[in-house]
Design a protein around this nucleic acid. Structure first.
Lengths: 172, 172
DNA sequence: ACTTGTTAGTGCGGTGTCGTACTATATGAT
DNA sequence: ATCATATAGTACGACACCGCACTAACAAGT
């Protein structure tokens, strides 16, 4: 414990690069999430916005549990998020006619409008970012990131649900 | 509001790729964070682990406020995180001799040992991931991601502190 | 039909995170 | 020196997130 600020890497060299990669990803997620949250109106959560986006892009009529799995959050959390959205009239949660215990989540017109407005309020930020960076950067990064995500998805230990539909934070 | 699951893109085409990129990053962050958290012992938080890593890599003797800025969290949050670490004896928070209102955060031997053990418990996961992917993937992605982070850092509106030392979730 | 086990969702309590308001110290102007 | 302003940290309350325990409904085997 002599030279504290210079701890030698306790990781296998092959893992070093991936550790740095995960670190960079976490930082970027933090930055972009903060950015989005700052643009969302009053009491609307990042998670709520994510659900609205998911319903818009992947389609209506999903069950709360399916949403919880898609976002990799406990079902109690999704229950809470949906309650907040329903209280604002942005989604409608109805009983599932096919399954007595289940529910069905539908996007309301107000929800779709809200999502559009929120997206529009974020657009200037993204445009400014895009203008400061090469246009081909996303195309260069996305395939590799998608590959990484796929491996992470498949590699889950305890949870055996690898449907590969994770969709954590959609904004476009 | 006819065809709901097929909303036309309300975003400028130049922003589309970046929106998808941010989305992918958020998903990956969620997945990797969940992975790490599952490996941390009992009451230790992801945020606490991040602080330990930061102190190990970037050095001791920082102030709580500097840490809060580095992690992009409010100072109240950092105060809480440090209190938790101090209660476990993993860091020592002492008054700053140069500044009567400030404090100085130092990593204890127990803290360094804990960080090492936590890192070792995560290593197998990272190795498994690395084994399933090309070895050159991190090198291919990191420059672009760093570039993106730099732009995001510089582009902050309200907060004028762009010291560029963000370090959200280090694990290697 | 009955029993067993699994799945969908909720109620409740604990805790992490954060905004607001406050104290104490430092800094700068006069 | 004095006063105004800015900065470091804390106290407190609100809320998001999540684990645990529970109910209701489906599914399977007998």
């Amino acid at each position: 414990m002599a030279d504290r600020t210079r701890a030698e890497p306790p990781l296998h060299p092959a893992a070093q690069g991936y550790a740095a990669l995960f670190n960079e990803i976490a930082i970027l997620a933090q930055l972009s999430r903060a950015r989005i949250e700052a643009r969302l109106p009053d009491g609307v959560t990042f998670a709520q916005f994510g659900v609205l986006n998911h319903l818009t892009r992947l389609g209506d009529g999903q069950t709360p549990l399916a949403l919880a799995r898609a976002f990799q959050v406990p079902k109690t959390t999704m229950s809470h998020v949906l309650a907040g959205l329903a209280a604002r009239g942005l989604v409608a949660v109805a009983p599932n006619p096919r399954d007595g215990r289940g529910k069905i989540v539908r996007l309301t017109a107000a929800g779709a409008a809200f999502r559009g407005a929120a997206l529009a309020s974020v657009a200037p930020d993204i445009l400014r970012i895009a203008a400061a960076l090469p246009a081909e950067l996303p195309d260069g990064l996305l395939p590799g990131l998608a590959q990484l995500r796929m491996v992470l998805d498949r590699d889950r230990d305890g949870n055996g649900d690898a449907d590969g539909d994770a969709d954590g934070d959609p904004r476009g």
